[in-house]
Design a protein around this nucleic acid. Structure first.
Length: 150
DNA sequence: GCTATTAGACCCC
DNA sequence: GGGGTCTAATAGC
């Protein structure tokens, strides 16, 4: 498995590649970096973390059940800077909130599939890379300086 | 197949 | 706000 490390403002990110395509993103993980960082991916991440880019679009390789792919694809319809509840997303996919949560948890490509934009109805919900990331990313998209600022 | 588990939602107190 | 109950997909048996 090829990989490289990207240093974001919120912390390190390990990007995993397969056949030149992104197949995994791990937030908060610093990895060895077996290959030279992919400039296309790095540029998009730079722009995203600067708040310039609202959508990541690089070649990816995803694997999952048909249901999971449907959920992840649906995420890309959630507009930048807004959030959707698990229930609402479930309604769109004609399934249950619980199942949506299961699929999101197994999302191998956070950021690319913006699972941080999915929140619980009366709580933040969870996040695979840690809740701090979710809060930071939402703050970034809402144009705030930093999470927790008052 | 069946059972336990889960990043939710709902209702009731 | 803290318990129960329903829920659908998944992992493990």
């Amino acid at each position: 498995m090829e990989s490289f490390c990207y240093e974001s403002v919120f912390g390190p990110i390990c990007v995993k590649l397969e056949e030149g395509r992104v197949c995994g993103i791990e937030l908060g993980e610093r990895c060895e970096g077996t290959v030279k960082p992919d400039q296309v991916v790095v540029k998009q991440l730079d722009e995203y973390f600067k708040g310039v880019r609202t959508r990541l679009d690089f070649p990816v390789k995803v694997s999952g059940t048909e249901f999971q792919l449907r959920v992840w694809q649906a995420l890309r319809d959630v507009p930048y800077g807004s959030t959707i509840s698990y229930g609402e997303l479930a309604k769109r996919l004609n399934t249950s909130p619980r199942a949506v949560g299961q699929a999101l948890k197994r999302n191998p490509l956070p950021l690319y599939f913006p699972c941080h934009r999915v929140v619980g109805k009366s709580s933040l919900g969870g996040f695979s890379g840690g809740l701090e990331w979710k809060k930071n990313l939402l703050a970034l998209e809402r144009g705030e300086r930093c999470a927790g600022d008052s």
